[in-house]
Write a protein that binds this DNA or RNA. Structure first.
Lengths: 138, 138
DNA sequence: AAGTTAATGCACTTAAGTTGCATAAATTTC
DNA sequence: GAAATTTATGCAACTTAAGTGCATTAACTT
């Protein structure tokens, strides 16, 4: 059985043709993609289907949504989980204002923040904005 | 001359009736507001005008836009500036997933993050999500 | 007060996200 | 393996927020 097929099944996502293709598509990218990016990558298939597919991926822990401040949702593959939990969400993202790409900095965790009494944190989103390495060298 | 009128003039915003009202409206709130919130707060005046007004405020350094991940832009008054610079942007925000309010934690600055070579940071956005103090006590 | 510049109101457009429903495909049950 | 059931897909349509063009009105300048 295909490697990707296994990954999907592990996450209880039935491996249909489109899902396999989308997973491969996401895997080939090293930056986060919008629904439009995905749509452009597939001649076939329909916006709604792609939308629901990515949402299924998200719900089942295959991708995470990134909100980089551009106003458009982006998605990137989760790292293969070591354990259970949402440590996935706690890495930070870098958004390049030049090329508009957003990447996961998976080994940069968000530092702990102590809040005033009464506040309970469940999730965090940290986006750094600036110029990425590629845009700086060219 | 009115206090608010002075503030607007200092930021080169002509103090029209609507602008004075909107500034007062923002000042009375201690959480960030959406354009819809503003619209509901004013019987009169038109969506577009309110939109352009808040954008003018933003451009002239009276408010800052907050992207809390709900997909709707929110705005909050800037703190009175101590000096020049964008230290304004570097505080963090707390979004309560229960009451949907977003507040500025102005005295909580975003800690410094060291990035890989080639990356230059110009701006940051950190949003913590969870339950706020009000929702926790009730 | 006349002229100029900026703000406002109205209509319309765009873009992303989202839902309903019929059809098609895949899985389960017999 | 065929029928029944569940799930996925495709199409159309809707919702919401954001944004633009342009004529009118208000504010400021001289």
């Amino acid at each position: 059985m295909d490697e990707i097929e296994k990954v999907l099944k592990t996450h209880e996502v039935r491996p249909t043709a489109i899902r396999l293709l989308m997973y491969k598509f996401l895997k080939e990218r090293n930056s986060a993609v919008t629904l439009n990016d995905i749509e452009s990558g597939f001649d076939k298939s329909e916006r709604t289907t792609l939308y629901r597919t990515i949402k299924t991926f998200e719900k089942n822990g295959l991708v995470h949504q990134i909100d980089d401040g551009t106003g458009v949702a982006k998605y990137a593959l989760d790292e293969p989980e070591v354990g259970i939990g949402n440590s996935q969400d706690l890495h930070l993202h870098f958004h390049c204002t030049n090329c508009n790409e957003t990447i996961c900095l998976t080994d940069h965790k968000i530092p702990h923040i102590s809040l005033p009494k009464g506040f309970v944190t469940q999730d965090m989103n940290l986006v750094l904005k600036g110029i990425c390495d590629k845009c700086n060298e060219s």
